[in-house]
Structure formats: C-alpha cells, structure tokens
C-alpha cells in the first residue's frame, strides 16, 4: 500500500446522486448475483460432503431442498447462475472491445433480462412436469 494513500478515500459511483438506468441496474445485479452465488456454491459442497457422511445426511439435505424455502432458493440460484453467466460473458465480450456502443448495450441488456427469465422458467417447468 502506498504511503500517500489515505484511509478515507471517497467511494465511486456516488449512488445517492446517480439516476438508475438499465445499464446500472444490470451491472449491480451482476454483482449481487455473483455474491449470492456463494450460497448454491456452498450447497453443492455440502451435497458432495454428505456422500462420505452417509445416506442420513444426504436425505436431510434433500429434504431441506424439498421445502418451500428450499425450492425458493433453488429457483433463485438457477436464475442467478444463468443471469450471471450471461452478463459475465457480455463482460468478456466488452473486454475484447466489442459491443460497447450504447445501442448494443441496450439490445444485449433486454436479451439478458428476458433470456434469463425464460430459460430458468423453462427449466423449472421441465423439472416440475417430469
């Protein structure tokens, strides 16, 4: 850390004076889904851990994810990973210098919003009906 760096640097962006737009909303959602994906990541580790621990623990975890709250978490995680993947890929495309014109940002934004909802909805529907 540099000596001249103070402990109280201002934070950016200045949220209180910032007008929400679809670009800023999608951006903050990418961050929120990224942080939120901690939960399913740990759930997958927990699932794998129950295998050497024995069927009792496995059934307990499966039971938890069959409750209303557990199912809610599953659906949210499913949407979260699809959304974060789509915006993440868009980030990588941006990093390669492509798709940064406002027109393309708007088009891809709508594609991501609608695509992530439709895709996760379709998957939930297929699971429930199988």
């Amino acid at each position: 850390m540099n000596k001249h760096e103070s402990d109280t640097r201002p934070l950016s962006p200045h949220l209180t004076i910032y007008r929400p737009q679809n670009t800023s909303i999608l951006s903050i959602l990418h961050r929120l889904t990224g942080i939120g994906l901690m939960v399913p990541s740990m759930a997958i580790v927990a699932l794998v851990l129950t295998i050497p621990m024995g069927p009792k623990y496995f059934e307990l975890l499966v039971y938890f994810f069959s409750t209303m709250f557990g199912k809610f978490l599953l659906v949210l995680s499913l949407w979260g990973i699809i959304y974060h993947t789509l915006t993440g890929i868009r980030h990588l495309v941006w990093d390669s210098g492509r798709g940064i014109e406002l027109k393309w940002v708007n088009i891809s934004s709508w594609f991501i919003i609608i695509g992530s909802i439709l895709l996760s909805g379709l998957i939930v529907f297929l699971l429930e009906s199988s």
Binding site: M1, E5, D7, T8, R9, P10, L11, R31, G34, I35, L37, M38, S41
Partner: peptide, 17 residues
C-alpha cells in the same frame, strides 16, 4: 473465481485500510 470477485467487492466498499 468467487475469491477474486469478492476481493473486488471488498476493495470497492471498505475504505478503512
């Protein structure tokens, strides 16, 4: 990836060294 991502988030929001 999670560690790297959260590092950026922490650096953005926590200014006290």
């Amino acid at each position: 990836h999670l560690k790297q991502g959260l590092e950026v988030v922490i650096e953005d929001y926590i200014s006290k060294k």
